[in-house]
Design a protein around this nucleic acid. Sequence first.
DNA 1: CTGAAAGCGCTTACAG
DNA 2: CTGAAAGCGCTTACAG
Lengths: 299, 299
Amino acid sequence: MAAAGGVSRATVSFVLNDDPRQSVSAATRDRVRQAARDLGHVPHGVARALREGSSRVVVLDLDRGLEGNHSRSCVRGLDDELAAHGHVLLVRHGQHSAEATRQVLDAITPRAMIRFAEPYLTGHDLEDLGGGRKDGLAAHAALQIRHPPSTGTPGSRRPCRRRTRRRARARRRFAEHTVHSLGLPPLVPVTVPRPKQAGTGAVADLREAHPDVTAVAAFDDDLALRTLTALHDLGLAVPGDIAVIGYDDTEYGELSTPALTAVHIDAEAHGRPAARTALGLDSAGLVPVPARIIVRDPV
Amino acid sequence: MAAAGGVSRATVSFVLNDDPRQSVSAATRDRVRQAARDLGHVPHGVARALREGSSRVVVLDLDRGLEGNHSRSCVRGLDDELAAHGHVLLVRHGQHSAEATRQVLDAITPRAMIRFAEPYLTGHDLEDLGGGRKDGLAAHAALQIRHPPSTGTPGSRRPCRRRTRRRARARRRFAEHTVHSLGLPPLVPVTVPRPKQAGTGAVADLREAHPDVTAVAAFDDDLALRTLTALHDLGLAVPGDIAVIGYDDTEYGELSTPALTAVHIDAEAHGRPAARTALGLDSAGLVPVPARIIVRDPV
DNA sequence: CTGAAAGCGCTTACAG
DNA sequence: CTGAAAGCGCTTACAG
């Protein structure tokens, strides 16, 4: 490559990286660019990574698949934004030991390793992102509880797997805050386990212990659909006897009867700043897309 | 590290890689191992990759998320098997341009890049994997059509996104073969689109045009659930009026009424040989886990 | 059996 | 403004 351009490898590097500390004549610059195009030359990432201390890869740690719209859109945002800055997003699925994580680090020394929804949880995203709107966990928890705004309905929900525990706790706190500020009775937590029969039993117990509960604000769509199924099996009317609202808008929500109304989180706007932070860039000026309720059947 | 052990870097490399071409005295070997442990020394993957020509990473290209059991278990198998051989699995989600793919290659020069379910489709997995059972697309397509074995029911199904088209076509062919060999009437293809109303319309049309169709063998669980919803909305009884059987066993299948019976593919056994092939290893001796039908409610 | 040296392809001070 | 040189941390012929 250097030979073809008739310049030193150093010069090639300067040109291809637009190094501002080095001025290169326009003629040389063009010559190098042209040669790179002709030869299809692209810097070898591994060599560059060795020299620079890390590869242009960001690893996202995600223990689940890409179930709802939240994770899916977040990945899209991360991917786009990283690509725009010459980096690559790679996802690691499953629950891994610390040792396995170290293996990844050792294998490619990624530029950063992101844990899914970490900032969403830690409060980073709870800050005002412009337009007077908060677009984080607190806002989303409140959005779910407030819907529909006209009827005051206590919600209930269920935290689940270990990794999500912290997030569940935070959600719970925000939901309780909302309930309180609306002057509603406190939340009644309920667990709707698998398999189906167990879930139905749990919902039956809830009805008996708390006949006054008029709505369920589910931790996620999976649990919302589980609850819907249980209510169906108990012969209860939705939303007549009790309403259900989901969180995270799975495509399966459309298929239940009644179809599931749910909080829809557009997390591309979360993924982008996360990407920039991972690269050590300023993440100002990104426009958030506030979460909204997808109303399917009346709740 | 070399200094601490009092040996040359070369020797460290020989010991740590168990190089068979080089004999190292037991004493030196122990000394190096001990020093490595003490210092927590691990070979730097990037440097090694530069020298060896590729990193110990395998990239899996997956345009969807991890929806059903097929992709999920396949990823598990790949991940396990690669880890057992000192490699790391990283997943790339979304539909990417050739340019973007090249970016990944340039960034870390992975050992291999796998396209999801490629061998599943190309026939690799259609071979007999031992025990006199085939555990591939042909077997799975047949399994779905044959269920329940007692009643002869024409199936219908729907291919969808571009990437899956080839797979859909192959499935279709295998299903038709099965139908034929069972002496059943030929398959009637049907598309059940989103949104819900459109799907319901499609199923209504099907009923009108082909009142003799008694069962739907869906392309995947999503479509099966869609069909179930449509039938419900049309006031038809399942399986009384028409049966539905899914493919790939989503956890949401449990929640419909009636619950969805589906083909359950344990693809860990597909992931493992794929991993070995990617590493250029022999994949003999791996035990396949044949697909089975998860019967939930009677079809 | 062990060690000194080359080289993988880059980037970046440094000298000209 | 340009080029020769060092060095990132490994592996692997090669000489001792």
